[in-house]
Design a protein around this nucleic acid. Structure first.
Lengths: 234, 234
DNA sequence: CGCACCGTTGATTAAACTCAACCTATGTGG
DNA sequence: CCACATAGGTTGAGTTTAATCAACGGTGCG
């Protein structure tokens, strides 16, 4: 856990706040800015852990974090990634439950913390905020449901192909066409719910077929049509 | 699709409305009662289908419906069941998207329909309603995430054991101890994401080990401790 | 330097799917 | 009333997929 400290970066929060808080009034935004706490999470550090109580929500300012559950024998299941402008932890806060996921930084990140009382104050004042949060939750719910169907029905190969495309869509590519998210083979396996070795074998199969290019952890999609076909998405 | 008609049963809606609408004022509740439409869905009939636009949400009055997605080659993935007092369809309405699931009645059911405009009117008037809906969405999201982890990491046997316990907890048992939800083997398979034959083999294995009792589709749990152990829940 | 961690490959095993056949109950139309 | 069709349930055999186990190479860091 890292300690909180004032962060000048909060000035440009309007960027990050474009998502959940965009319907707040100027004074509400100011209230928020005055009452939130910013903190830095170094790469590899944990923001919070499954089972712990969290006392507010986090809005990602910079960086990327992974949100995961710990299953059988400590195996991670990655639920989603959190990017700038997104909020995490709201599920537990809204339901008054302990966190049901852990969150770890994949890159050096900065996050803003809004405590439960402040969030509820704003929620009661401004029904638009509730609707915004509801929309976010519903979006995640829809994604979770389709992903559930995928895992239940598709093969590992199909899922890997799909995830590569999803990652490219979600994080984009750099000038060289490399997907802007660096994951270990194990993390890839923990997204699609398979063994690390299976990911390795399939990745090199894709590479041999000219579908992707691999340089260590950097992945570049060469033939998205083939990937789409393999993934069974229409 | 069945046609709408006035239903006297709406008087006792306070029962069903205990969940999502409990924070409405008397006049808001009256508005709701005056503007909703009730309809009957016969067993086996579809309320709405994936991909269709729905113009409001449904609140279940009586009966049980299954909510499912259609995956590869038409195979159903059951996402959840909807019981009296629960609402469905809100995800699509809130996100302004087409339905991402289909809903079919497992028993003769009655449902109340609240159109999008009326829902939004109430949402804007009463921020508590938004919070209630948010709580419902967050609860479902938490369930979806843990189920995702289960499907990704557990064996079919573990999942079947878990589902049997979940169904008993969710629907209860009758005086003979039989779970109050009758499903075909195929439907059970479509919850846990496996083949019908696998469910059949595992059910008879459980029966042979004295863990459950089977009479056609009626299932009775005899030894919940063993089930819990098999399912790897602690 | 040596320890961790990650990635890779091969061999083996186990889980679960698929396919096929057959059985039963139920309902339907002639 | 019977013949037939339909849907669901069951069982066995064979196959496929993916997990597991084991060994080893590379890389980076304290």
């Amino acid at each position: 856990m890292s300690k909180y400290f004032e962060e000048p970066a909060c000035k440009d929060c309007k960027n990050a706040f474009s998502t959940a808080f965009k319907k707040l009034t100027a004074s509400q935004l100011e209230y928020l800015a005055n009452n939130k706490l910013c903190s830095q999470i170094k790469k590899g550090k944990t923001l919070y852990e499954e089972g712990n109580r969290i006392t507010g929500i986090y809005c990602i300012n910079t960086g990327i974090l992974k949100v995961y559950k710990t299953g059988i024998e400590g195996k991670e299941q990655i639920i989603k990634f959190a990017k700038p402008g997104e909020i995490i932890g709201y599920r537990s806060v809204i339901n008054g439950e302990a966190a049901c996921t852990s969150v770890k930084a994949l890159e050096d990140s900065t996050v803003c913390f809004i405590n439960t009382q402040d969030l509820y104050k704003l929620l009661k004042e401004n029904s638009e905020l509730g609707i915004e949060l509801l929309q976010i939750a519903c979006k995640e719910l829809g994604e979770a449901n389709s992903y559930l169907t995928d895992i239940a029905q598709k093969s590992v190969k199909e899922r890997l192909a799909e995830i590569l495309m999803r990652l490219q869509e979600e994080f984009g590519t750099n000038k060289e066409g490399i997907i802007n998210l660096i994951l270990t083979r194990e993390e890839l396996a923990n997204i699609i719910g398979t063994a690390t070795e299976s990911v390795i074998r399939l990745l090199s199969e894709f590479k041999n077929e000219g579908i992707i290019d691999l340089q260590a952890r950097k992945i570049k999609i060469l033939n998205i049509q083939k990937l789409k076909k393999i993934s069974n998405i229409f």
